[in-house]
Deep mutational scan, measured.
Amino acid sequence: KTVEVNGVKYDFDNPEQAREMAERIAKSLGLQVRLEGDTFKIE
């Protein structure tokens, strides 16, 4: 899975870890996480 923030992509081998990281980043920035294919987009 991939986490994308402001056009910057971070790859994770563990999908659960990617989801947790995406949620943590989104919460700290006051944004939403949206799953698009294999990418968690933070917008």
Score class of each variant (00 low, 15 high):
Glu43Ile: 13
Ala18Pro: 00
Lys1Ala: 13
Lys41Ile: 15
Gly7Ala: 02
Arg34Val: 12
Met21Cys: 15
Glu23Gly: 06
Lys27His: 10
Gln32Glu: 12
Val3Ser: 01
Val8Ser: 06
Val5Cys: 15
Pro15Ser: 11
Gln32Ser: 13
Met21Asp: 00
Pro15Tyr: 13
Pro15Asn: 08
Lys1Met: 14
Ile42Val: 14
Asp13Cys: 15
Glu20Trp: 07
Asp11Phe: 15
Ala26Arg: 01
Met21Tyr: 14
Arg34Gly: 04
Asn14Lys: 08
Phe40Ile: 13
Ile25Gln: 01
Ile25Gly: 00
Val8Glu: 08
Phe12Cys: 15
Phe12Trp: 04
Leu29Ile: 04
Glu16Gly: 09
Gly30His: 06
Phe12Leu: 04
Ile42Tyr: 02
Pro15Arg: 08
Leu35Cys: 15
Val8Ala: 07
Thr39Trp: 05
Val3Met: 02
Tyr10Thr: 07
Glu16Arg: 12
Leu31Arg: 05
Leu29Cys: 15
Lys27Leu: 09
Gln17Ile: 12
Asp13Phe: 09
Ala22His: 00
Asp11Tyr: 15
Phe40Tyr: 15
Val3Ile: 10
Lys27Met: 09
Leu35Glu: 08
Ile42Leu: 11
Ala18Cys: 13
Val33Gly: 01
Ser28Thr: 10
Lys9Tyr: 07
Ala18Gly: 01
Glu23Tyr: 13
Gln17Cys: 15
Glu36Ile: 12
Thr39Val: 13
Phe40Gly: 06
Phe12Thr: 02
Lys1Asp: 02
Ala22Tyr: 02
Lys41Ala: 04
Val8Thr: 09
Ala18His: 01
Lys27Tyr: 06
Met21Gly: 01
Val3Ala: 01
Lys27Ser: 09
Lys41Thr: 07
Met21Phe: 15
Ala26Thr: 01
Asp11Gly: 10
Leu29Ala: 05
Phe12Gln: 02
Glu16Ser: 10
Val3Thr: 00
Ala18Arg: 02
Ala22Lys: 01
Gly37Ile: 02
Glu23Lys: 07
Ser28Asp: 12
Glu23Gln: 11
Met21Ser: 04
Ile25Trp: 14
Tyr10Arg: 06
Val33Met: 07
Lys1Asn: 10
Glu43Ala: 08
Val33Leu: 08
Asp38Asn: 10
Thr2Gln: 10
Glu36Asn: 05
Glu4Met: 13
Ala26Tyr: 02
Leu29Gly: 01
Glu36Gln: 07
Gln17Glu: 13
Arg34Lys: 12
Asn6Glu: 07
Lys9Leu: 10
Glu4Leu: 13
Arg19Ile: 06
Lys1Arg: 13
Ala18Lys: 01
Asp11Val: 15
Arg34Ile: 12
Phe12Ser: 00
Leu31Glu: 04
Pro15Met: 12
Val3Asp: 01
Glu4Ile: 13
Lys9Cys: 15
Arg19Lys: 12
Gly37Val: 02
Thr39Phe: 05
Val33Gln: 00
Ala22Val: 07
Asp13Ser: 11
Gly30Ile: 00
Glu4Pro: 03
Gln17His: 10
Gln32Pro: 09
Gly7Leu: 02
Arg24Gln: 08
Asp13Glu: 12
Ile42Met: 05
Leu31His: 09
Asn14Asp: 13
Gly30Arg: 03
Glu43Gly: 13
Arg24Trp: 11
Ala26Met: 03
Leu29Arg: 05
Thr39Ile: 14
Gly30Thr: 00
Lys27Thr: 10
Ala22Asn: 00
Glu43Phe: 13
Leu31Trp: 10
Asp38His: 06
Ser28Phe: 13
Ala22Ile: 05
Arg34Cys: 15
Val3Asn: 00
Glu36Lys: 04
Gly7Asp: 03
Arg24Met: 11
Glu20Thr: 11
Ala22Phe: 06
Glu16His: 10
Thr2Phe: 14
Val8His: 11
Ser28Arg: 14
Thr2Tyr: 14
Ala22Gln: 00
Phe40Met: 08
Gly37Gln: 03
Gly30Leu: 03
Lys1Trp: 15
Arg34Ala: 05
Asn6Leu: 14
Val33Lys: 00
Gln32Phe: 09
Thr2Ile: 13
Gly37Phe: 04
Arg34Leu: 08
Glu4His: 06
Asp38Leu: 01
Asn6Cys: 15
Glu16Thr: 12
Ala22Gly: 02
Gly30Lys: 04
Val8Lys: 11
Ile25Pro: 00
Val3Gln: 01
Leu29Val: 04
Pro15Asp: 08
Thr39Leu: 07
Ala18Ser: 03
Leu35Arg: 06
Phe40Trp: 14
Thr39Ala: 07
Ala18Asn: 01
Lys41Tyr: 15
Gly37Cys: 15
Asp38Pro: 08
Glu43His: 06
Ser28Glu: 14
Arg19Val: 04
Gly7His: 05
Gln17Ser: 10
Asp13Met: 11
Ser28Met: 14
Gly30Gln: 06
Val8Trp: 09
Lys1Gln: 06
Phe12Glu: 02
Leu35Gly: 02
Glu43Thr: 11
Lys27Val: 07
Phe40Glu: 04
Asp11Glu: 14
Val8Arg: 12
Asn14Cys: 15
Tyr10Trp: 10
Leu31Gly: 12
Val5Gln: 00
Val5Pro: 01
Gly37Asp: 11
Leu35Ser: 05
Asn6Phe: 15
Gly7Phe: 05
Glu43Asp: 11
Val3Phe: 03
Met21Val: 13
Ala22Asp: 01
Tyr10Lys: 04
Gly37Thr: 00
Thr39Ser: 09
Gln32Leu: 11
Asn6Gln: 08
Asp13Lys: 09
Lys41Val: 15
Val3Gly: 01
Tyr10Met: 10
Tyr10Ala: 03
Glu23Arg: 07
Pro15Cys: 15
Glu36Tyr: 09
Pro15Trp: 12
Glu16Cys: 15
Lys9Asn: 06
Arg34Asn: 05
Lys9Trp: 06
Leu31Met: 13
Met21Asn: 05
Gly37Lys: 06
Phe12Ala: 03
Glu4Gly: 01
Glu43Ser: 10
Lys1Thr: 13
Arg24Val: 08
Glu23Pro: 00
Phe40Pro: 05
Lys41Glu: 05
Leu35Thr: 06
Leu35Val: 12
Glu23Leu: 10
Pro15Leu: 11
Val5Gly: 01
Arg34His: 10
Ile25Thr: 05
Gln17Arg: 11
Leu35Asn: 04
Asp38Phe: 04
Ile25Asn: 00
Val5Thr: 02
Gln32Gly: 07
Glu23Asp: 11
Lys41Trp: 13
Pro15Lys: 08
Glu43Asn: 07
Glu16Ala: 13
Gln32Val: 14
Ala26Ser: 06
Tyr10Asp: 00
Pro15Gln: 11
Leu35Lys: 08
Glu16Ile: 12
Asp13Gln: 11
Asp11Ile: 15
Gly37Trp: 02
Val5Tyr: 14
Arg19Thr: 01
Gly7Tyr: 03
Lys41Arg: 09
Asp13Asn: 09
Arg19Trp: 11
Val33Tyr: 10
Ala18Phe: 06
Arg24Ala: 11
Gln32Lys: 13
Thr39Gly: 08
Phe40Lys: 04
Glu23His: 12
Leu31Tyr: 10
Val8Cys: 15
Gln17Lys: 12
Ala22Met: 03
Gln32Trp: 03
Ala26Ile: 04
Val33Phe: 08
Ser28Gly: 07
Asp13Pro: 10
Leu29Thr: 05
Arg34Pro: 01
Glu20Ser: 10
Gln32Ala: 12
Leu29Met: 12
Asp11Arg: 14
Glu4Val: 13
Ile42Asp: 04
Phe12Asn: 00
Glu4Ser: 10
Arg19Asn: 03
Glu16Asp: 11
Lys41Gly: 02
Lys1Glu: 02
Gly7Asn: 05
Lys9Arg: 14
Val8Leu: 10
Lys9Ser: 09
Arg19Gln: 07
Gly37His: 05
Arg24Cys: 15
Ser28Val: 10
Glu23Cys: 15
Phe40Ala: 06
Thr39Asn: 09
Leu29Phe: 06
Glu16Lys: 12
Glu20Gly: 06
Ile25Ser: 02
Ala18Tyr: 02
Val8Gln: 11
Ala22Cys: 09
Ala18Val: 03
Ile42Lys: 02
Thr2Met: 09
Glu36Trp: 06
Gly30Glu: 04
Gly7Cys: 14
Ala26Asn: 01
Glu16Val: 12
Lys1Pro: 07
Phe12Arg: 00
Glu20His: 10
Phe40Thr: 06
Glu36Pro: 02
Glu36His: 07
Leu31Val: 13
Val5Ala: 03
Glu20Leu: 11
Met21Gln: 07
Thr2Cys: 15
Lys41Asn: 04
Phe40His: 07
Arg24Gly: 05
Ala22Glu: 00
Arg34Thr: 12
Ala22Leu: 06
Tyr10Gly: 01
Glu4Gln: 11
Glu20Val: 12
Glu36Leu: 07
Leu31Ser: 07
Lys41Gln: 08
Asn6Ile: 06
Lys41Asp: 05
Thr2Ala: 12
Arg19Tyr: 10
Leu29Tyr: 05
Leu31Ile: 07
Gly37Leu: 03
Glu20Pro: 00
Glu43Leu: 12
Arg24Asn: 09
Val5Asp: 03
Arg19Phe: 08
Glu20Asp: 09
Glu4Asn: 06
Lys27Gly: 08
Asn14Met: 08
Val5Phe: 14
Arg24His: 08
Asp13Arg: 06
Val5Trp: 14
Lys1Leu: 11
Ile42Ala: 02
Asp11Met: 14
Asn6Trp: 13
Ile25Ala: 04
Phe40Ser: 06
Arg24Phe: 09
Ala26Gly: 06
Arg34Tyr: 11
Gln17Met: 12
Asn6Gly: 12
Thr2Pro: 05
Ala22Pro: 00
Leu31Pro: 01
Glu4Ala: 06
Asn14Glu: 08
Arg19Ala: 07
Glu23Met: 11
Asp38Tyr: 04
Lys1Ile: 12
